[in-house]
């Protein structure tokens, strides 16, 4: 039922004029994709610096609060660019993306990463009051930084794998994979 609804929605998006224009425009599509990938340097680049700092692998003697506060807004700007361009990439190829195993895993991982970021910031706010220079980074923050590195590494891997068509519905994958991908029996649009 849900998969049928997602499929119908994707087919409707696919039929819109701008979706076709974006998909078939060599330079526009590639610029959107390039921007999506290059904004990694702002979003994940800054996030990794924060995570590595929390884990004790980078920037010793700088307050973790200082690092997190300073890099927070540029990092969010990077993530905003990533999400906007990511949405445009979905808009350009909606049916195949909506039925991609890797895209679905990526979305689940993104939800986990967002939840982890929320818990991380809550722990950061809670520990801010009693924190002073020289004290070790609280365990909750180190754990959150570790999960963040792992989740975003998996997000990037899944994002990269979306380009591969091994489990696309058109290739009639194993029934379990077809169910997870949301393939619809008798579908003629891929």
């Amino acid at each position: 039922m849900l998969n049928q609804w997602i499929f119908d929605f994707a087919v409707w998006v696919d039929a819109t004029r701008w979706s076709t224009l974006l998909h078939e425009s060599f330079y526009l599509y590639n610029w959107v994709e390039t921007t999506h990938v290059l904004s990694l340097t702002i979003s994940l680049g800054l996030l990794f610096l924060i995570d590595l700092k929390m884990l004790g692998y980078a920037l010793p003697n700088v307050s973790p609060l200082q690092i997190a506060n300073r890099l927070h807004w540029p990092m969010l700007l990077g993530f905003s660019v990533m999400f906007i361009t990511g949405a445009l990439l979905f808009y350009a190829i909606p049916v195949r993306s909506a039925q991609s195993v890797w895209f679905r895993i990526k979305l689940l991982l993104l939800v986990c990463a967002a939840l982890n970021a929320f818990l991380f910031h809550r722990a950061l706010r809670q520990s801010a009051a009693g924190w002073s220079e020289g004290l070790p980074t609280p365990r909750a923050l180190r754990r959150g930084a570790g999960y963040s590195l792992l989740l975003w590494t998996l997000v990037v891997i899944c994002g990269r794998l979306i380009a591969y068509d091994w489990f696309d519905c058109v290739k009639e994958p194993h029934p379990l994979l077809a169910a997870f991908a949301g393939c619809v029996a008798g579908q003629e649009v891929f």
């Binding site: 990938v37 290059l38 990694l40 340097t41 702002i42 979003s43 994940l44 680049g45 800054l46 996030l47 990794f48 610096l49 890099l71 540029p74 590494t153 990037v156 891997i157 994002g159 990269r160 794998l161």
Partner: peptide, 18 residues
């Protein structure tokens, strides 16, 4: 490996940006 290439780019990009 391509995904790790991108992660390396993120690491280098973050350091260059800051």
């Amino acid at each position: 490996i391509e995904a790790f290439h991108l992660l390396g780019l993120a690491l280098l990009g973050g350091a260059v940006l800051v």
